[in-house]
Write a protein that binds this DNA or RNA. Structure first.
Lengths: 235, 235
DNA sequence: TCATTAATTGACTAACCGGTTAGTTGTTGG
DNA sequence: CCAACAACTAACCGGTTAGTCAATTAATGA
């Protein structure tokens, strides 16, 4: 294995970095599976093949360990966001991708969904101790606002749309059927997360958001078309 | 107090029914506030001014007590549903009310939101032990299907709408900003549940669903209007 | 090579917590 | 009036759980 030679002097029996990462990974699974109260530090220790005290040595407390897991998951959100590329696209296409990306990210990251739910059960007490997660959302809202404004200027989108409301709707449409899949699939007697089902739901969500945005009411649309006129009317 | 005379022989120190109800009410608050794992049987006992063993006498176990709370909350869902009245209204108005009712019910019943989240964190393990909650949802889907079909027959609604998907969307739009209000209000730096904010969100949600339903694509709308023709095309 | 530092462990504890045992007290029907 | 039963309590139990203390072992640098 010539690849690993580049990394480090290759310790044999001890490797702080790797051990710490292993604990964190095990903790992620534990917290996602059992929630904050249901998670057991002993179980995390056993699963990562490590003495329990090592966890306290590296992470201080159960809550701090949980917070680090939480921050890691939210950080993954930023990586996938690729806001920049959207700003150059035509408004309708940009919005279509934004919705689809949000949907796909939720589907691909079940841990995010569960941790968001868990965190809200705890009134976001831990997230509020965090630093650095918050800025991610400022950029997201900016992106939505930008796309929205361009679409409205071109007379393609309805006016009077609150970007935050739109964000809540996009997220809600993609979040709910996933976060509540266990009660819902039982109550509705159908699988909600099969590949085929997810694909049709994705289409449905994209269509709903775009129908809403491009549905211009009659009195608003009269004598529309030219972008300049549209911009004029906004005063 | 002449009013209470009609009720019963008025026991003084003991009242099984009232005590049981008091425990259940206290338990509801405890489970909603702390979740299933976070709830403490001792605390429920103290708060209801009752010996802990009495809880086990009436409810058997912590899980069974939780289940009874859960069933009570879901039962409230049925009471508020008033499906019947909707079926007689014109499709658009019926759908408008269905969406608004769902929204209002979620807003008015924060306990429902929290318990649904809590239950999903636990993979719906407790709900699945329940009998009688499931039928409620059959009726709900029927109502949606009926309204949808009538609206489509009259050429008012787009075709090819899965009733279940529509239900998931209506719920998701009303659920997400409430269930995740604690993380979201922190991340977005704004209050989400103030009276005014809820009112604008309500309008937004109703508008989005109706825009989607009434947005007939060009190729679908050509030569539309007559209901008969519409019905004809569905073959 | 040896002292220093960091990684890692075993053994332990105090508090907690769901559930139980063994009762006491009030109500009610005969 | 009293036996039988239901409502209700006090005290306890055993397993669990987050967190700690003191030691041991491996790498590191001088």
């Amino acid at each position: 294995m010539p690849a690993e030679a580049a990394a480090k002097p290759a310790r044999q029996t001890r490797n702080a970095e790797a051990t710490r990462a292993r604990i964190l990974e095990t903790a992620r699974v534990e917290f996602v599976t059992h929630g904050l109260n249901g998670a057991r530090v002993d179980r995390i220790a056993d699963q990562s093949g490590v003495n329990k005290n090592l966890i306290y040595h590296y992470f201080g407390s159960k809550d701090d360990l949980y917070l680090e897991v939480l921050e890691g998951i939210y950080a993954g959100l930023r990586a996938r966001q690729e806001d920049e590329s959207l700003r150059d696209l035509p408004p309708v296409e940009a919005m279509r991708r934004l919705v689809a990306n949000t949907f796909d990210h939720f589907v691909a990251t079940p841990d995010l969904i569960r941790l968001m739910s868990i965190e809200n059960i705890h009134y976001a007490a831990n997230l509020k101790r965090s630093t650095g997660v918050k800025p991610l959302y400022r950029g997201l809202l900016d992106t939505i606002s930008t796309i929205l404004r361009r679409g409205q200027a071109e007379g393609l989108f309805r006016s009077e749309v609150d970007p935050a409301d739109l964000y809540l709707s996009i997220s809600g449409l993609a979040y709910f059927f996933l976060s509540n899949q266990h009660t819902l699939s039982w109550l509705l007697d159908r699988d909600l997360v099969g590949t085929k089902r997810v694909a049709t739901r994705r289409q449905h969500v994209v269509t709903m958001v775009l129908s809403y945005l491009t549905h211009i009411s009659p009195d608003e649309a009269e004598g529309a078309t030219p972008e300049v006129l549209k911009r004029e009317r906004r005063r």
